[in-house]
Structures are given as structure tokens and as C-alpha cells.
């Protein structure tokens, strides 16, 4: 006997992602899912954004093991929850649901999720975020967009980090722009350096506008 199922295998995750979104909407909180390979500079980028953005920010850190990143964020006086996936290669919506229980939602405007460093698996898992930022750093090379199209396709914006190293590397911003916009024509690109602060003004202006527009729409 044939039984029709017609169920999205990710439906259980997506349902909880929608519940996360609803909870955050109720608290007027904007959530950003930050994705990249390990070592692209996600934590430093979040630290520098926190210093420049006049909003109440909380952070959810996702790593396979350790609390190294959470300790760094905590030093800035920012509420942070560390999720250790224990081997799993991505964060999922139930993990975020649990993390949200441990953040002061009544005094948060913006949540950064630092996803597990991985350019494959996190792309498929909705968490309840408003936007997905994908980061590529100049030291990784300018071919990553061609090699991992899945994750770059879901990005709302692309952050190109470590542009202070451009003079020492064979990394072409033109090539990145061209390849990325073919995959994802509507997205924005922010070349910046979390070390020198170059390029941050544009990014901060954009994220601030995003948060304001979100709050005005609710």
C-alpha cells in the first residue's frame, strides 16, 4: 500500500524556527544569523559591531566545543549564550529556542547568532532569523563562492573581512563581486576590516536601517 506523505523533512525544524520568530517579533528583536568557515573572523566582527552600534545586543555562540568565543563577548558586558553542538556541524531551531530562554529578551534589540564555522550544513537550517550574513575573509581565497554556492545563495549580505591584508594576497574583490552577484543578485556586499575598522561605517548604517525598518513594520 502506498501512503502519500508529502512532508518537508525540515518541517519540524522550520516550525520551531517560526515559533522563535514569533517570540522575537513579540519582543521587537531583530536576529542575524552569521555564517562562515572557521577562522574567517566572525567573533572579532561581532565584537567590533557591538562597539559601534548603539543598540542593546545579545549574542548566541555556536561551536562544536569550548566557550572561547562566549568568554570574549562576555568581556564586553554583553549577554551571551554558548551552544556546544558536541560534534554536530550546524545550529538548528530547537537549539536557538533553548538559548533564547537564557537571554534577557525584554532588554534586547538585536541578537547575533554566530553559527558553527562551516560553509555547507548551516545553510539549510532556518533558525528564526531576519537575515543571514555570510562572511568570506580574504585569507580564504576568492574561489569560495564558486566552491560553496549553496551558502552564498542564501545570504542577505556578504561580508568580506580582513581587507587590510589585500596588499599581501592574490584576492580579487572584482572576482568576488562578479561571482557572488550571479548567485545572489539582490544581496549587498560589505568589504571591511575588523582589525582596522575600514568599511565599518557602511555596514553599521545598513544594519541600523534594517533594525529600524523591522521595528517600524511591526
Amino acid at each position: 500500500m502506498n501512503i502519500p506523505v508529502l512532508t518537508d523533512i525540515l518541517s519540524a525544524n522550520n516550525l520551531i524556527a517560526e515559533q522563535n520568530r514569533k517570540l522575537l517579533d513579540d519582543h521587537r528583536i531583530y536576529m542575524v544569523n552569521l555564517l562562515s568557515s572557521p577562522g574567517a573572523g566572525k567573533t572579532t566582527f561581532i565584537e567590533e559591531t557591538i562597539k559601534r552600534l548603539d543598540l542593546a545586543i545579545s549574542v548566541i555562540e555556536g561551536d562544536v566545543a569550548s566557550d572561547v568565543d562566549a568568554v570574549r563577548i562576555k568581556k564586553l558586558g554583553i549577554p551571551v549564550v554558548q551552544i556546544n553542538t558536541g560534534g554536530s556541524c550546524h545550529l538548528n531551531a530547537p537549539m536557538i529556542q533553548k538559548a533564547l530562554e537564557n537571554l534577557p529578551l525584554h532588554k534586547t534589540d538585536l541578537i547575533f547568532i554566530e553559527n558553527v564555522g562551516n560553509l555547507i550544513c548551516p545553510a539549510g537550517y532556518k533558525l528564526g532569523e531576519n537575515i543571514s550574513l555570510v562572511m568570506n575573509s580574504t585569507t580564504e581565497g576568492d574561489d569560495k563562492i564558486l566552491k560553496y554556492p549553496g551558502i552564498f545563495r542564501v545570504a542577505t549580505s556578504l561580508i568580506i573581512n580582513k581587507i587590510d591584508l589585500l596588499p599581501y594576497l592574490d584576492y580579487s574583490l572584482e572576482k568576488i563581486n562578479e561571482n557572488f552577484l550571479k548567485l545572489n543578485p539582490q544581496a549587498r556586499i560589505f568589504p571591511l576590516s575588523s582589525k582596522t575598522g575600514e568599511g565599518f561605517d557602511e555596514w553599521i548604517k545598513w544594519i541600523r536601517t534594517g533594525v529600524d525598518n523591522f521595528c517600524n513594520k511591526l
Binding site: M1, R153, L183, P185
Partner: peptide, 28 residues
């Protein structure tokens, strides 16, 4: 994976399929 029209090269395209992870039916 390029989200460009192969005929007119416009980036103004809508994705119709390709993202499915669907359990369609089971035989029991």
C-alpha cells in the same frame, strides 16, 4: 546555481524548484 536568466541575463528571476527536501510517499 547561477540565478541569472540564461537567455536575457537578467538577475530578476524567481526560483521555482530546486530547494526540495521532501518525503513524498512510503510503501508499506
Amino acid at each position: 546555481f547561477m540565478m541569472l536568466c540564461p537567455l536575457c541575463y537578467s538577475p530578476n528571476v524567481k526560483l521555482l524548484s530546486g530547494q526540495e527536501i521532501l518525503l513524498e510517499d512510503i510503501e508499506v
